[in-house]
Design a protein around this nucleic acid. Structure first.
Lengths: 186, 186
DNA sequence: TAAGTCATGTAAAAAGTTACATGATTCT
DNA sequence: AGAATCATGTAACTTTTTACATGACTTA
């Protein structure tokens, strides 16, 4: 059992999904959180099924190829629950750009600040997207987002994290840009 | 060339270091940013030397075992500079705890909030440590931290990021704790 | 003398990325 | 007819983690 398999359990717990659906959801919803490609997903699903955490049923479709739809077993649900309520060791940041920032002193400040501005644009874009997604959820569900036992609660708090993260990142980028640009001018 | 090798270049650029020194610095300074173990460092150094980015000199010591001290070549310095000033693609968050938060709805809210409080303690601790490190640097170096061409500038902005990150994380944890605890009571 | 730090490596396994591969169906 | 989407896999490679391995010297 690794983090990927728990993530897949978490998605399947919300609704039965095929490998293809999971690939799409991992890209669209979890892309920023835990990116994976389908080549990792299919073998993982086979292994999880062998462990009795999920089962699949082949669903024929008239207009598309047949698909394997996975759902959780009782053991799968318990495993997910245990993972969620188990202590989590400290995580590392592993952000290549922060690593570059640590060595930014070797570079020309003007070139560096151009890269910071690039990042600013990326994070601004990401922030706007998160805010839009949250607004959409709030418009559609309102107070239902606060029901701690509903999947939407998880979606909402993850989105809140994403928004806080992007805001923090932007504030930091801007403070560094100010420092870089005041210095190479003065 | 991978992220690890650039990180090592970034450390050696500040001062000549042995594999052991690098292991220690990676653990102590970069531990939160880019964790690695010595088993990854030694082969990487050999490869970087074969590529002409670094050279080593064996330094005998009277009281300890001899060590190989690495320093950058001109090519190594250029490579580092190019990496720093190259565009950085968007990074993912890859934080297991946020992944758990996404599935927190399957868990008992009280158990969940206990885990959130655990994280709160961890991040509080980390924040305090960063703040202390920054205060120490500021006390010792003052305005020198703003010289964009000095290594300390890199250290300072990385620390500022760390502090902003931990503050953001704490604020988020507390908001979720409030939601979890108001709900399972009301 | 035993534990701890300094010092440097190799081996094996797990996780993640990129490329290869196939085939049905739909839309333009 | 060709491109795009749906659907599922395998293979090769890189990166990361964990375990194995050795030896000098220091401190309690």
């Amino acid at each position: 059992m690794n983090t990927l398999s728990y993530t897949l359990l978490g998605l399947i717990a919300r609704q039965p999904l095929s490998g293809y659906d999971l690939t799409r959801q991992m890209r669209e919803r979890m892309g920023l959180l835990w990116p994976v490609s389908h080549s990792q997903i299919y073998p993982e699903l086979a292994q999880m099924e062998a462990q009795g955490l999920i089962t699949h049923e082949v669903v024929e479709q008239q207009d598309r190829p047949a698909k394997k739809v996975y759902r959780l077993t009782v053991a799968g649900h318990l495993t997910l629950e245990q993972w969620v309520t188990a202590p989590t060791p400290p995580t590392s940041i592993r952000d290549e750009f922060i690593l570059k920032a640590y060595s930014v002193w070797v570079a020309d400040p003007q070139e560096a600040s151009a890269r910071f501005r690039e990042q600013e644009a990326q994070h601004q874009e990401q922030l706007a997207q998160h805010e839009q997604t949250l607004a959409r959820l709030q418009a559609q569900w309102g107070d239902a987002l606060e029901r701690v036992n509903a999947p939407l609660f998880g979606s909402a708090i993850a989105l809140h994290y994403g928004i806080g993260y992007e805001q923090m990142y932007l504030a930091w980028l801007r403070s560094v840009i100010a420092a870089l640009e005041s210095k190479h001018m003065g």
